[in-house]
Design a protein around this nucleic acid. Sequence first.
DNA 1: TCCAGGTTACTGGTAGGACCAGTCGAGCTG
DNA 2: CAGCTCGACTGGTCCTACCAGTAACCTGGA
Lengths: 261, 261
Amino acid sequence: MTDRVEFQPVKPVRLYQRIVEQVEGAIARGELNPGERLPSERELVAQFGASRSTVREALRVLESTGVVRSRPGDPNGPEVLPFSTSTLAKQLTRLTQAQEVSLADLISFRMVLDSSANMLAARLRTDDELAVMESTIARMRAAIDAGYDDFSAADVAFHDAVAQASGNMLLQVCNHVVRGAVLSLISDKIAHARNSAALMSQSMRHHEEVLALIRDRDSQGAGQISRRNLFDYYASYVPKAEREPLRALLLEPETPSGEVR
Amino acid sequence: MTDRVEFQPVKPVRLYQRIVEQVEGAIARGELNPGERLPSERELVAQFGASRSTVREALRVLESTGVVRSRPGDPNGPEVLPFSTSTLAKQLTRLTQAQEVSLADLISFRMVLDSSANMLAARLRTDDELAVMESTIARMRAAIDAGYDDFSAADVAFHDAVAQASGNMLLQVCNHVVRGAVLSLISDKIAHARNSAALMSQSMRHHEEVLALIRDRDSQGAGQISRRNLFDYYASYVPKAEREPLRALLLEPETPSGEVR
DNA sequence: TCCAGGTTACTGGTAGGACCAGTCGAGCTG
DNA sequence: CAGCTCGACTGGTCCTACCAGTAACCTGGA
């Protein structure tokens, strides 16, 4: 077959890792489905021929990656979980906080994701999804006097509803994570802003604009406005020297004339 | 302070999880940086006051999430690793395998990320970065006869160069991960395509178009073409019923006339 | 003086035993 | 038949022990 024997570098594979691979493989091949149970630890010890310590280390790895869940005393054994985006979100969060990601990067990313979600939502939304957005907008309006926290929660709910309507779970998850990262970086500044009421009513107007465009199925307009709103809302927190990327995403650098509000 | 005492529902927290949290916290707070070492397992046993099994379970979890790496016999102890995209990529591919994320979702996301990277790169690129892109394009052209693998590698290098020039690490990492996920899902189909040479030369033209726009600093054009190229390249792999989101991202639904090739 | 060799004191990987606190169901008790 | 008790499980944690690897140190010879 090959014209010369090719040797691959060998790396030691831990025993617990083999167990993890076997379980993951069984799930990937559909032999083990969410809701089903693994044998008990002591039974796995017998099946794998490994010590309980090793089996447990494998189970901890599987548990940390959201594949299974162990409950003390459960006679049925560890449960195979349905796939969840939470570990993906956790990794993304690590990326945003551990790595050198600037606030400008986060906001750029947020502009990209949110505007895309708005574009897709405008095109693909159902009437039910539109109704959900409208109800969250109503909650925002109601919360405008209740204080920033309630307002912010309704705000988040609105963006989640839009992301949901986009139909793209990736967009949904990433958007959620990045928004959380941005808010955790500047929420204190917003909360302590003396003109928070003004900020909220400005934000209110912005959201209603977007909602109107989504209602009218104006995909391009919804994306455009979404980017601009985020820029207007967050740009002041970004050092002037780093605002260029944000401006580049506005799509309207060569149109000084026009309806720029 | 509070007008009534509020009790929170308690959930049992495993001991190994507390250890994981402490280590992750120390890294998040910057007290522990990549390249530094954790104390040895037996030393951690003393510090945490837990048994070695428990400490090891915590270390296995940290290892599986790419936070640390243990090497047998290393007198320096487990090493704190720099952030890696591999676990992120692994989670993403798991999601796609579990059918939680469709190929259409991945390609939509890729269109969003790649076009944004192109927009930013067109606006912010330095001449050096442009030179890097040009060299990868040259590599692609050279590899067009060498076969799909080399071509694909150069292709990846080009997109990485663009992402790098965008200046946004989030965009860079996510783009990289998503591209990897897409390729792992359909690379076999592409490699076995009988007209792979035609595909490559088509791809070649597309990339040169994009490069020209980045050279001319045409931000909007680069983003637009990037989306269209990806659509043309990948849409055929997506079931027709799921192509609507991809089309929605093309920004040109209301322009049936024009240079749609 | 310098270097090659082996010794040694660690490291992490694995095994297996023991005990505890839960959970659940079988079976006893009323 | 309802309710309770009890026992046989579960996973969580601890412990000791041994093995194989690594690297620094130590020792011998040149």
